[in-house]
Design a protein around this nucleic acid. Structure first.
Lengths: 171, 171
DNA sequence: CGATGCGTTGATCGGTATCAAGGGGGGTGG
DNA sequence: CCACCCCCCTTGATACCGATCAACGCATCG
């Protein structure tokens, strides 16, 4: 699933991609809503707001856990803001791949090859680039033997250490 | 106060500016920390974590309130991600000014003129631009009679409607 | 087999960064 | 009280990264 918002003129920003087990919708109580779109077949578990709130009321631990989840989300958002505001195209794609690999690993999903269920357009809207630039950067990472493309829907990360270097300070 | 992080090579991203009454530090429980810097004289109220957590445990309403605060923060962060990922320099500055004006109004702070306690460098690091570009965009807004500079530390917003238009779709 | 959607690659453009010079205000020391 | 300095800001000239425009390949599907 991707979480996004779109400006009236069509410019879209994707805030993140959810993996299996992720929680979404905390923010739905706020003034502004988000769009969520499935990238793959999805099984979702929905909680009714009033019932959910009542449940929280009776289970303080859950409330604390929610605060903790929200904390992590804010920290994750900050990493994304750093990516969007201060990183080069190469660093953005490298960060995107490194993060996705790490998160997939935590969830015990396959990371070799690493599946990319999103399109180039979605990667572009997540990284604040265009599809052409995304494609060119993938090409460069391929030429540099950092990754190996497996079709367009997956990559084999050949040099995770170099990828991590690219993610924070490119040449 | 500004909330920020800096990359090893010195690139800085500011995530937001706190106004009087704002709450900070929820995110401090996460893996990554943030830097906070005072822009003006500040009076702060500090809560010890364990005591604060115990207090929350005994006051479920506070916990729910915290979840709500976290929600709003996420939504605010999303607006900022949209700004950084998809907006032009003019839109970024216009959005920055419009948002600051709105938030200042909510807190019953003076908005005419609107005080800008942060330096150009801090505005640049918030908007993902350089100080030169920030300065040029202010110049353009001034020439277009959208704002009137009051020294470098304040602006009079002459045309809020036009500013709002610039904030979401510039020419 | 043509149409359609997605991805890649090439050529060129343009917005913002970078490099450079100078102005102004406020604090400090003579 | 004044001269100097330092910091912040502005403005101009130029460079460059990523956007835009364009063409094409390839797979999928009707």
């Amino acid at each position: 699933m991707s979480i996004s918002r779109t400006l009236p003129d069509g410019r879209r920003q994707i805030f993140g991609f959810l993996l299996a087990g992720d929680f979404a919708g905390l923010e739905a109580g706020a003034v502004y809503g988000f769009d969520a779109e499935a990238l793959t077949d999805v099984r979702a578990c929905r909680f009714e707001r009033p019932a959910f709130e009542a449940f929280i009321r009776d289970n303080v631990d859950v409330a604390l856990r929610l605060v903790h989840v929200a904390s992590n989300e804010r920290s994750q958002a900050a990493r994304h803001e750093m990516l969007l505001g201060r990183k080069t195209a190469l660093e953005r794609i490298a960060t995107f791949l490194a993060d996705l690999r790490e998160r997939s690993g935590e969830r015990h999903l396959r990371t070799h090859p690493l599946s990319l269920p999103m399109t180039r357009a979605e990667i572009a809207d997540y990284t604040g680039l265009t599809i052409e630039t995304v494609s060119r950067v993938f090409g460069r990472l391929r030429d540099d033997k950092v990754v190996e493309m497996v079709g367009t829907g997956a990559v084999r990360i050949l040099d995770p250490a170099l990828l991590a270097v690219f993610a924070e300070s490119s040449t």
